[in-house]
Each structure stands twice: as C-alpha cells, then as structure tokens.
Amino acid sequence: MVYVLIIIFILLAVLEIPGLIHKKLWGELAAVLVFLTIGFTLSLPLVLGIKVPSPNNGIKYVITTIAQKIGR
C-alpha cells in the first residue's frame, strides 16, 4: 500500500509540476509542493496504520470547554 501511495503522489507531481515550470508559475509550483507534502504526511500514517488524532477532537474540546465556561 505504501508503494501505491508513493506512486500516486509521484504521478500527481509528474502531472502537475512540468507544466507549471514550463509556464514559470512559481507561486503555483510552491503551492502544489506544499499541498502535496501536507497530503503525503497526512496519508502516510493512515496507510501505515498509525493513528492520527482527528482535528475534530480538538475542535470539540475547545467548544465544549468554552461552552462549559459560558454555562457557568
């Protein structure tokens, strides 16, 4: 599965990057690289089976604590 993931990301990079370099769209290139990196770091643990804490838990925590404080 890890290999499939890597292949997918390489494929995406190959699809996107050459065109951007050709058109000299450096901003886009940076954005693409940043997003691909984030995507890869998020999906790699998922594929490896490592638990990643959901951002929802954090949001839930913040909201419930605020709600409790207001409720008091």
Partner: peptide, 10 residues
C-alpha cells in the same frame, strides 16, 4: 487548477 489535485490528497 494546478492545486486541485494536491488539495484533493489532503
């Protein structure tokens, strides 16, 4: 458009 698929991975 170039960032659509990278965003998709996220």
């Amino acid at each position: 458009r170039p960032i659509v698929l990278p965003l998709g991975t996220i």
